[in-house]
């Protein structure tokens, strides 16, 4: 073994070893605190809904009052629509704004603009603002296939919400959307929804062509 063969090995410090210092008390205290915390955290979860910890679900519902607040502050809304929770007469009406925020805004966005190329806008949509039967049919039964909205073509699937929303709720959310973001179409009454149900019963999704055939051009 030539001495110049192991220059680096020659100069280095010995192989490492461990000292014998005891565990600091503060580390032991921290372990105890964490064990207590862990037990407490498990216990705290008892009775919580089985959402996998998704605290976002309540956010959607809680945003309903915010929606009406920002509408008021923007001042762009006319009063008397079914949308605002503070409007409406003495009878208890479902809140269209909160239903929109919970059921529709994920795709059509809170501002009704949709997502270009994926989800059609509601603002300025001829289908939404057409004769009341068309939007009721779309939301109640669903819609699929190619459709042209406000000059752009979309191809997708919208699920029907007839099974989830009552007639009054469906009417409220449509009335809300028909009066927002510059839309200006008539309010829809729950009776229109029940008439639609009587006429068509349980049916699957509509296509744009079928809608035009049955109800005429939007």
């Amino acid at each position: 073994m030539n001495p110049t063969d192991h220059r680096a090995q020659h100069r280095e410090a010995p192989e490492p070893e461990e000292g014998t210092r005891a565990t600091p008390k503060i580390v032991l205290a921290w372990i105890v605190i964490l064990i207590i915390w862990g037990v407490g955290y498990y216990a705290w979860q008892v009775g919580k809904p089985l959402l996998g910890g998704d605290s976002r679900t309540p956010v959607a519902e809680a945003s309903a009052p915010q929606t009406s607040v920002s509408e008021d502050s923007s001042g762009s809304e006319t009063s008397g629509t079914a949308g605002g929770s503070d409007t409406g007469g003495s009878e208890a009406k479902p809140d269209g704004a909160s239903i929109y925020s919970a059921q529709c805004s994920t795709c059509h966005q809170a501002n009704g603009q949709g997502v270009p190329g994926a989800f059609p806008p509601l603002a300025g949509s001829e289908w939404l603002q057409a004769d009341a039967e068309i939007p009721v049919a779309i939301v109640h039964d669903g819609l699929q296939g190619q459709i042209e909205v406000a000059g752009n073509t979309f191809e997708g699937v919208m699920p029907g919400l007839g099974a989830q929303l009552s007639d009054a709720e469906l009417a409220a959310v449509l009335s809300y959307a028909r009066s927002q973001w510059g839309n200006d179409a008539s309010e829809i009454s729950p009776e229109t929804v029940s008439e639609h149900k009587e006429r068509f019963g349980e049916r699957g999704s509509w296509t744009a062509e079928e809608l035009t055939e049955v109800f005429g051009e939007p």
Binding site: E12, A13, P14, E15, P16, E17, E18, G19, T20, R21, A22, T23, V27
Partner: peptide, 13 residues
């Protein structure tokens, strides 16, 4: 510890 030439302080840790 190799570069410092000094043991790691605690075996327990």
């Amino acid at each position: 510890p190799k570069i410092l030439g000094k043991p790691i302080i605690s075996y327990q840790l």
